[in-house]
Design a protein around this nucleic acid. Sequence first.
DNA 1: TTGTACGCGTTATCAA
DNA 2: TTGATAACGCGTACAA
Lengths: 348, 348
Amino acid sequence: MLSVLADDQQRESGLGRPGGARRRATIHDVAKLAGVSRQTVSRAVNDKCEIDPGTKERVLEAARLLDYRPSRFARGLVRKGTVTAGLVIPDLMNPFFPEVAAGVLEAAELRGWQVVVWDSRTDEAREREALDVLSHQADAVVGYFRSPDDELARHLGGVPLVLLERGPQHTRFAAVGIDAAAGVEQGMAHLVRAGHRRIGMLDGVHGPAPRRQAFLAEARRHGLSVDDGWIAMCPEHSVAGGEEGMARLLDARPELTAVFGFNDLIAVGAMRAARRRGRRVPEELAVLGFDGLSLGELVDPGLTTLHIDKRRLGRLAVEQVARLRAGEEPMNGTDAWVIPELVVRASA
Amino acid sequence: MLSVLADDQQRESGLGRPGGARRRATIHDVAKLAGVSRQTVSRAVNDKCEIDPGTKERVLEAARLLDYRPSRFARGLVRKGTVTAGLVIPDLMNPFFPEVAAGVLEAAELRGWQVVVWDSRTDEAREREALDVLSHQADAVVGYFRSPDDELARHLGGVPLVLLERGPQHTRFAAVGIDAAAGVEQGMAHLVRAGHRRIGMLDGVHGPAPRRQAFLAEARRHGLSVDDGWIAMCPEHSVAGGEEGMARLLDARPELTAVFGFNDLIAVGAMRAARRRGRRVPEELAVLGFDGLSLGELVDPGLTTLHIDKRRLGRLAVEQVARLRAGEEPMNGTDAWVIPELVVRASA
DNA sequence: TTGTACGCGTTATCAA
DNA sequence: TTGATAACGCGTACAA
């Protein structure tokens, strides 16, 4: 008891020190000021009923005076149940990802979870930093990662991870993804149906390989004489990246009549680059996107694209996390896959 | 490799236990299993040097077996310094806000802070819920709020708050904002310079009033015979909302030759609605936006707009939080204001 | 190199 | 209605 008092007096003197940021008040400080026990303070602050209205008011007044706020750590220690998920997003400027994030936030809120967000900017080093932090501060992580499984595991320290847009064959972690093959199939069928035979693709660097592979497979299936030479890499998944890739593709394959974009931003860039070179869209060059951003309705001509339910993707990811946490088997196959849906507008 | 297998098997067997979810392993459990003291476990897990490599390996193996992860609460309790900020965003589908969020995330990361994000969907009830949670789980909150100061304070419980886009005259909290008047002044000058006299405005519901007020003030200053009747409300801050508002405005004021949008999304909606009514943009109707979304470069004609440095807005907000936390006076006036900059494209 | 003992801030249990 | 005491899980002097 005495030692506690001495301790407090020491604190007090530290408090008065001018210029230094002073220590945050604890429940103990409030108790002392109000002349009650810590327990009573706890009751007052947490709105318990077993407390005299008068003392409660006195305690709250003291708390206000000291700017007291309960420590979330001490509270979390004793009250189980606060769940925090980490969300790692590669590019907040691409409207695709905020929409996925919205799905994650929505599902997390429904479960009473919190979400701390990191922007990795498609940088592997930043991915690792994010994991280093989140593995300590979050109960689970979901996000987009380029790093291989082993690298992820190394920075994960056993925290459950749900990968976005990685097929189960490409990772040993739980994942939710997009059925790229189904999407590309619809898209290619649409182009071929319209009479196109000389179809190129604008691939994204560090993008999931399935889209490229599906493109080549579909081209073969339709008997097109299309190979790697018909695929141009875009340096980034943006409109500018699409413009750059398209310029290169048009140089390499001027006979091109249609182009399949890795995503909508790239496709929009392709439209712009094509037009800058004097090619009319869609009359002289058809452009097909992938994502279904609302941006696609706004450009002229409207972008034909494979629409993805991005919010659902986010919600599914949260559901996977929940399964992992419950010790259940994560969803697999089509349950964890979102199927793209062709939306035909004017561009193709 | 072997250890991973063992780990999985352990999970499997734990799964079979009919009792349900078992308690998470603590440092104590690991110590017991490894036959050492908790202290040694701590050293092994935290990579301290004063430990024998052999015992360290044994401890880590035990930790892996039990799927042990240190409690972030217990850790936070003893190791001070983890700062968590709450970020409340009204609409993740509007590209404006992800960009602000990117600025917040960027600045927060630089300081080693984490950010937990909430999507309030411009709903006051959801704002309050967000505050109720964040006031317990975050060390400070920044965000967009429609609720009045008193309401915010009630749900804040003393947590520092930084308001986004509220002038200091409209709140007693710290804030960072946009100099709407300066923006509107540039925009109106541009339109008047181009010969427009019959200028309307598409205002957003629950949007900051300054834009509307500045619009009316500038109209007066330029001697335009423009009043409230020239302002149409958009039911939401989206393209669709802009279309709806524009339709109403054209009904009310068919003689309109230019329109000022509350934001870029609304302006784009206005362009679409105008064209649907057979008005060519910009020849028969000039359209001016506010925000400077990259979307504006993509539409046709390109959107003339008042560009805002959204990332900077986010960074400033974090800086305000830092000042609040340090007990300093928050920035005030122009230091905490972002000034819009006119970007002329084809639409006006 | 390893272990003991204590403190971190809060809530829960039980006794007064 | 109130208060003493014991967890909660972890880090860290300090002692062994």
